[in-house]
């Protein structure tokens, strides 16, 4: 081996180690930053791409039960790419899906409104108390989460049914003489959603209200504002980020809610979660079910991204 060659090897080895060293530092930094992105990619983006891909195929009696988009045969030397938009066209043509989306959005909107109404006083109280009382209130909000969600919905069935606790109590007090029909109604669905999603509303509200500068309220009082005026002019606008975050956290899952309407609602409650179930299990049409899911995501995500965007700009300004 010649000396020049050895020098060259040494040189490139030095380069390599430097390169490696450089890379290692970068990689460490990269890995810290990339964790959330990796999370999003694995648990949101990849599943979404899979669902989107299925929505472009057609149903078939096979394993898996849809036609492949990409098909190739090396012996006969062909590759075919077959994308079907028929599912999306069918979604547009048939007004059934539109009314299912609209009625889901209506149910979710009404429930979100009532959740906000119930959650605000709770969060307000939590933010205004101190020390152990606050810890106790916080625990009370979070504690129900320790019980299975399904169990809590079943508990509501026990309360709301015809010979359930509420009816029995009201009857024995003589307030009503016929049991109230509460189960299998939209009312029961609203109760179920408000109850289940309450903590998702309380916690963001609480964190917004807790950060509030109390001297602002004193100043308002000094300047002659009545309590309700200072609430609407100061507290509410300052709590707005919490209100928006809480409403989104409740509204988004409520639109796709399947279990609560299935257990508490009547047969006539038309929601998109149920439509998805029917497409998937009764029609065995995975592509159509995927199409319904993709459209739901678009309907939900686009306006939300717009809201977040405008919020971001406000924050920067």
């Amino acid at each position: 081996m010649s000396a020049s060659k050895i020098a060259w090897i040494n040189d490139s080895y030095a380069k390599m180690t430097r390169y490696n060293f450089f890379r290692r530092v970068n990689w460490g930094r990269f890995s810290v930053v990339s964790v959330p992105y990796l999370w999003l990619a694995i648990f949101f983006f990849i599943p979404f791409v899979v669902v989107f891909k299925i929505s472009l195929s057609e149903a078939a009696i096979a394993v898996p039960p849809y036609t492949p988009i990409l098909d190739w045969n090396l012996e006969e030397a062909y590759v075919t790419l077959k994308i079907s938009l028929s599912n999306y066209l069918f979604l547009l043509e048939d007004d059934f899906y539109l009314s299912a989306y609209l009625s889901s959005i209506k149910v979710a909107a009404i429930s979100t409104f009532f959740t906000l109404l119930v959650a605000f006083p709770i969060a307000y109280l939590m933010a205004r108390t101190e020390g152990s009382t606050r810890a106790l209130l916080l625990a009370l909000v979070i504690l129900p989460f320790w019980t299975s969600f399904l169990l809590r919905v079943y508990a509501w069935m026990g309360l709301l049914k015809k010979n359930g606790l509420i009816n029995e109590t009201l009857m024995s007090l003589g307030l009503i003489d016929q049991p109230l029909i509460m189960m299998q109604t939209d009312f029961a669905v609203y109760i179920g959603i408000v109850y289940t999603y309450l903590p998702f509303m309380v916690l963001p509200l609480y964190s917004a209200l807790e950060k509030m500068d109390m001297t602002l309220l004193e100043a308002a009082e000094d300047l002659g504002a009545r309590p309700y005026q200072s609430f609407f002019l100061i507290t509410l606008p300052l709590a707005m980020p919490g209100v928006i975050a809480g409403c989104l956290l409740v509204f988004i899952p409520a639109v796709g809610e399947f279990v609560i309407p299935a257990l508490l609602g009547g047969s006539d409650t038309l929601m998109i979660g149920r439509v998805l179930w029917d497409e998937f299990f009764l029609n065995r049409d995975w592509p159509m079910a995927s199409g319904v899911a993709v459209v739901m995501l678009i309907i939900l995500v686009l306006p939300i991204m717009l809201i977040r965007n405008s919020q971001g700009k406000e924050g920067a300004a």
Partner: peptide, 11 residues
Amino acid sequence: LTRTWVNIKTG
């Protein structure tokens, strides 16, 4: 059938 069924259920 599924569509007919949903229509019956939801009235």
